[in-house]
Design a protein around this nucleic acid. Structure first.
Length: 171
DNA sequence: GTAACGATCCTC
DNA sequence: AGGATCGTTACA
């Protein structure tokens, strides 16, 4: 029951994304109750050179939060319907983020943000200091397998085949 | 100004 | 297998 601090998120996304597995995402609702959810699946998006990453076209009003220091949330809308929850990683000016794809008892990245009532207003939220959301240590390290990322066919052979999707194997 | 495009999910 | 649905981006 201890909040994960800044130093955890400042590292490379390829260490942070798998490192999030087995940790807990804590959400404090408007009623003050804290709910804890086990993180079971993540994906890594790494820098402007990664053609699957939103920052591939440089800094824009939408992606500028990815350039902040690790620990900040990047929340955006896909397909005009679903909000995606990402945690920015790495040092400042290095656009990386870990997508939270699945929590235990949730069924997908769009569903979990609806369940946790996460929307645009969480964009830019800092997990190192926020009072309504943070990460807590759980059972680490945890067994997992790597797979290719989802929904990024446009990224080209090199990048769409990267095994940057991390899935907990025993839950 | 206008048009095209999704890091998804649900219903045929 | 395909449609929903709208903010962001690119281009004129």
């Amino acid at each position: 029951m201890k909040r994960v601090g800044r130093e955890f998120f400042i590292r490379d996304v390829l260490e942070v994304a798998p490192g999030l597995l087995g940790k807990y995402l804590v959400r404090v609702g408007d009623d003050g109750n804290a709910d804890r959810y086990l993180i079971t699946e993540t994906e890594a998006y790494r820098g402007e050179e990664d053609l699957a990453c939103h920052a591939r076209k440089g800094k824009t009003p939408r992606t500028k939060v990815m350039y902040e220091k690790g620990g900040v949330l990047y929340v955006y809308l896909v397909y005009g319907i679903h909000w995606m929850l990402n945690i920015v990683t790495g040092p400042e000016e290095q656009p990386q983020a870990a997508l939270i794809r699945c929590l235990k008892n949730a069924e997908g990245p769009g569903i979990l943000t609806k369940m946790l009532e996460i929307g645009k207003d969480f964009n830019g939220e800092d997990l190192a200091v926020s009072r309504r959301m943070w990460i807590e240590n759980g059972v680490n390290p945890v067994p997992y397998r790597a797979a290719t990322r989802v929904g990024i066919d446009y990224a080209g052979e090199t990048w769409k085949n990267k095994p940057w999707r991390y899935i907990m194997t025993d839950h």
